[in-house]
Design a protein around this nucleic acid. Sequence first.
DNA 1: AAAATGATCAAG
DNA 2: TTGATCATTTTA
Length: 204
Amino acid sequence: MDILERNFYRRSSIQVSKELLGKLLVRKNDNGLLIGKIVEVEAYMGTIDKAAHSYGGKITKRNKVMYGDAGYAYVYMIYGMYYCMNVVTSCINNPEAVLIRAVEPLYGLEDMSKFRYGREFNALTKKEIINLTNGPGKLCKAMNINKENNEENLCSDELFIAEDPNRQDFDIVESKRINIDYAEEAKDFLWRFYIKDNPYVSKK
DNA sequence: AAAATGATCAAG
DNA sequence: TTGATCATTTTA
């Protein structure tokens, strides 16, 4: 597989987030690989972005990986129940990241079904299949991404992002980011990007 | 519309 | 030490 190298991530979060659309998120587990095509992302822009965990230069145990080099995973628990996965971008001491909000499941759907619902893929309804990975918490559950993956090197072979060998053309839609109403003026920035008409984009 | 659910963080 | 918050999902 053609794994993205670190220099890909060493650029502005906005630039990287748009280019991540259509790429493959790959998770290695005991049974083999789980693969999802990235269809929805959000950019979080360092210390000046009121929606970002790094706003104001705040550095904590949770978000410290954002201040390191690009190409590492930032995985955190939210609402006590779910994990969200980000990709750290930019450079050291510029804490930018891209939230992976949705993927289209391509490979390892049986395992994803077990992780997500604890049931066989064959038993899923159409709606349940769509709901496998169409949200940041959902895709982490389906791909077994959790706190163990925080600070993981994405330029390794355990958890990484690769080029899609069957890439198709698509249009990119820009919109406001989701669930950041606390972020004052930053809540209106068009830093959410998704593949137009893809069925796995999270609910509008 | 509102519950579920607990780690995280800033305040005291 | 404590209490409010939260880049969500599910259920009703």
